[in-house]
Nucleic acid binder design. Structure first.
Lengths: 200, 200
DNA sequence: ATGATTCTGACACGACCGTGTGATAACTTC
DNA sequence: GAAGTTATCACACGGTCGTGTCAGAATCAT
């Protein structure tokens, strides 16, 4: 038996995936082509297709990469002293408050729009969507250990809180880059305050 | 002086604009091409370009048509007896609760994504965005005439309420067509309830 | 009818698209 | 080294894209 050349395939995928992100953010979703991504990644289009045989596969990976990144960032957070503070940190990671997170959100939204009419992309989008919703629920649950949130039912508040997060995210990426994003962080904080009052 | 053939230009624009909507909803934003729209509208591509000289102009119109439609629908609502009920009706018109409004929202989101990287589309998107925000403010203001909402400051609650609306809208168009949408109406109603409590 | 003017549509150009094919390079084991 | 496997890449094909050009149809005051 003879062993051939071997590359780190997943590293290659990430490299290409991030190149795809840059293309989407810089030139828009309609420029997300095999050729443009290969150019951005500095490889030949044929090589790209060795890793991603078809455009669809690339798109799915691009979407999944967003989900993976967000997930990684969240599990890296260590809890603060108060549940409230911890949960606010968690939720903050879901908002495009800085350039890095903004890129993720723009890609997620752009490629996500393709999922509206492309059945192949649906599962990848739904995974991210469900993860987000599950995260909202878990965060709210964590909040209930705080005595101030005794009247809070996480199951009841998940949908609305999820909507607040995605709504704020949507509005954040609609404002010019480098513009102040603190208002959104304040809205998030205020929303969490409101959840405390709500439980009678 | 001699007068030539004259068509109702704005009617033609609407006809083509709606054809463009159908293309976007059915085949996705990447299929929004001069040729496809002309085919869907049943005219030659050259004729379409007589009304919309360039693709950009068509895109802008498509976006503006959404804004116009939503606006028209809202001004057509006649107030209910209670401010609360009226406002809830108003907000409901901003959510894609039925097929018609879903189409609008899908188009708005799809073409809106293009505005992220296309400066020509930015103004049209911003117009709709600002209208929506202004609407939220006005609706909340209307709510304050109700004694239950004495503690409500519309200026404070506009951003979050706007986020709730857009977040719910985003989630609604992510679920399969013909699936139940009542949950979102309930969330909206609940949000308005929460606003009443919040004012101490 | 006729002619000015608006409108329609067919065609062509160059560019980019996804993807199939096959030749070549790179690398590990023998 | 030599052989065999994997990885890289250039090229070509058919298709679609936006748009420029221009001939001709439709319309209305004269």
């Amino acid at each position: 038996m003879v062993m051939p050349k071997l590359i780190d395939k997943s590293a290659r995928e990430r490299l290409i995936g991030e190149a795809a992100w840059r293309v989407v953010v810089r030139d828009g979703i309609t420029s997300l082509s095999v050729r443009n991504v290969a150019l951005e990644a500095g490889i030949a289009a044929g090589s790209l297709r060795y890793v991603f045989p078809t455009q669809e596969v690339l798109r799915v990976y691009v979407l999944d990469l967003v989900r993976q990144r967000v997930l990684d960032r969240i599990v890296a957070i260590e809890p603060s002293v108060s549940p409230r503070e911890t949960v606010e940190n968690y939720f903050s990671q879901l908002l495009p408050l800085d350039a890095e997170r903004r890129v993720e959100m723009e890609v997620f939204l752009s490629v996500g729009v393709l999922a509206l009419t492309d059945p192949v992309l649906q599962p990848a989008y739904d995974r991210a969507h469900q993860d987000l919703r599950a995260g909202c629920f878990k965060f709210l649950e964590l909040l209930t250990v705080d005595s101030k949130y005794g009247g809070l039912d996480p199951a009841v508040e998940t949908a609305r809180t999820h909507a607040v997060i995605d709504g704020l995210a949507l509005h954040l990426i609609r404002q010019p880059k480098n513009e102040d994003t603190n208002w959104a962080a304040r809205e998030l904080s205020r929303h969490l305050d409101c959840l405390a009052m709500e439980g009678r």
